[in-house]
């Protein structure tokens, strides 16, 4: 995956997380763990459902580790590799 497409995925995830948390996308740091931003179980599942629909991937069957879900950066890097 090239740098540009990684950036596009990351920016897209930032927008989604910002919408779930009702925050300004500019205030979302991709390296901060999602739970520290205030995401709870419900918000996290909402994000996973959005990712599945948007990137047409099955996260539940993807074999991703728990650490892959921790930050937007880690998640977007994995999504990029799977696309």
């Amino acid at each position: 995956m090239d740098k540009d497409s990684h950036k596009v995925i990351e920016e897209s995830l930032i927008r989604e997380v910002a919408a779930i948390l009702s925050r300004d996308p500019g205030s979302i740091e991709p390296d901060i763990p999602l739970h520290e931003m205030g995401l709870d179980s419900l918000g996290f599942v909402e994000l996973l459902v959005i990712i599945e629909k948007k990137f047409k991937i099955k996260l539940m069957e993807s074999g991703l580790t728990r650490d892959d879900f921790r930050t937007i950066r880690a998640l977007s890097s994995k999504i990029g590799a799977m696309e």
Binding site: L39, S41, L42
Partner: peptide, 12 residues
């Protein structure tokens, strides 16, 4: 919860 249920899965 993290070890048994996964990341951010405290509710289930």
């Amino acid at each position: 919860a993290f070890n048994e249920a996964g990341y951010l899965m405290l509710m289930p």
